[in-house]
Design a protein around this nucleic acid. Structure first.
Lengths: 192, 192
DNA sequence: TCACTTAGGCTATTGACATTAGCTAACCGG
DNA sequence: CCGGTTAGCTAATGTCAATAGCCTAAGTGA
């Protein structure tokens, strides 16, 4: 019985590949074990449980997405950075739909590693909005709005909710421009 | 054995109540049957399958949400209607998180009832944006942007992704105002 | 009222899945 | 080369969704 040489990371990695193919909810340990050339219970030497595996996938996905977003915004600022990051976000999500889904799983309270990588991703967004000099709650509102805008579009798109033939790329571009426009008058909005 | 008097609608209704309590993914037929005072296999006299039950829940949820949105926008127009509909959307989703999740399930191709009620809901959004006189793809882009904005915020909120203490009501209000502001210059955006 | 049909319950069973227990063989530090 | 750790394994359990087949309460028509 030669060893398969699995590791926790390797298992999570293959699980992510497989989930992107069949859907996060339809990933089974039996199929995953099969693909790794191992019997199903053997996976438990590397994972705690199905939930634990999903947590591992979530951490990997958040790190991965964070890296992509960081690269997309380097050397840019303001509207340029926001636009670049937005498109990178959407492209990554479309290329890895199950990983994207996993990246939206909340860390369990006390899971410091997951919490850290989650915060880092949000911090990237905060950094890119920094050019607008928003303070306190204004900044938080803007970060939430940006996350909502991106997640909403990508989530609807990947779930197939945009039925009409109209160009989805164009719609996304429009949305991002709209957000940037709204951001320009952010602090003024309250006064209406 | 006295009859329990179940119907397809009654089952879907109770399933929705239960799902809102335990989460859509954690709803089991065993627990549902128990609650309805019936054995688990008996449910199959009223549903086709778990997927079929979820479809029924989706149809009910879409109709329900559609009604709420329609009532929220009656007698209003323009920014007023958009704002009112937005808050109604969020309030309904928070009150019924699993129903909300179900309402985002896509109809199976050829499921005319589900398709009809899905289109009706989107039509409500189109109607409320009609005051902005958008034509063709401009209108589609705006509808997609509105849906993305609302769904993104609500989805992140109900999944617990807004960790910070800052007032979420305020953030949502800000987002809606931002969308309305963006909409005012919608057709001009492309020209930049 | 009484036969007949329909349909909504039931028990028993299967098969997919996650998970645990306990065994064995491969690797690893001395 | 030896002893411990660990990554695999088989076997078994419990929880699901789902199917098959029975049984009888409820409606229906004369």
């Amino acid at each position: 019985m030669p060893r398969a040489g699995l590791t926790r990371d390797r298992v999570a990695e293959e699980a992510a590949v497989m989930a992107d193919e069949v859907g996060l909810a339809k990933l089974t340990l039996a199929a995953l074990a099969d693909r790794l050339g191992v019997r199903q219970p053997s996976l438990y030497k590397h994972i705690d449980s199905m939930a634990g595996l999903q947590r591992d996938m979530a951490v990997h996905a958040k790190r991965d997405l964070g890296g992509v977003l960081a690269r997309a915004s380097v050397g840019r600022s303001g509207a340029d950075a926001i636009s670049s990051m937005s498109h990178a976000y959407r492209d990554w999500a479309r290329a890895h739909p199950a990983r994207y889904e996993a990246s939206n799983l909340m860390p369990a309270p006390g899971d410091v590693e997951d919490e850290a990588v989650s915060i880092e991703a949000v911090q990237l967004i905060a950094d890119v909005l920094a050019a607008y000099n928003l303070e306190g709650d204004d900044a938080i509102d803007a970060i939430r709005a940006f996350r909502a805008t991106l997640h909403g579009f990508v989530s609807l798109e990947t779930s197939g909710s945009f039925a009409l033939a109209a160009d989805v790329d164009r719609s996304f571009d429009r949305l991002v421009r709209g957000f940037i426009a709204a951001l320009a008058q952010w602090t003024g909005d309250t006064a209406s």
